[in-house]
């Protein structure tokens, strides 16, 4: 029963991660890409918490690490959205194929 539970959790988080990868690969909108990245972060967090519950670790390390991930994800979102907004101000678009200022 424990094995089944453990493997189901990992498969679920794997599926969520791949949904995030799919979103990053197919979205045109930069905000949509950021949202897909959030999905990938969360699938990693699910995995860490499951490892904390179902594998023998010394302490609750699997709970402390997701806290740092959530903090950094919040910082990443703030900076990413600020970048998108400043790009939007410059080129009046949020679509990634229009962001080709560095291409010659």
């Amino acid at each position: 029963m424990n094995d089944l539970f453990f493997y189901t959790i990992i498969i679920v988080s794997l599926v969520l991660f791949l949904i995030g990868v799919y979103g990053v690969l197919t979205r045109r909108n930069a905000i949509g890409i950021l949202m897909s990245i959030e999905i990938m972060f969360n699938s990693a967090n699910i995995n860490l918490v499951a490892f904390n519950k179902f594998l023998a670790l010394e302490q609750n390390i699997g709970i402390v690490f997701p806290i740092f991930i959530i903090t950094l994800a919040a910082a990443e979102t703030a900076v990413g959205l600020a970048l998108i907004l400043s790009i939007y101000r410059k080129i009046k678009s949020v679509y990634v194929e229009k962001m080709d200022l560095l291409k010659w």
């Binding site: 424990n2 094995d3 539970f5 453990f6 493997y7 990992i10 498969i11 794997l14 519950k53 179902f54 594998l55 023998a56 670790l57």
Partner: peptide
């Protein structure tokens, strides 16, 4: 995952 042989037990 399936070849890793991880054993889940509740701590």
């Amino acid at each position: 995952l399936l070849t890793s042989g991880l054993k889940g037990f509740e701590r």
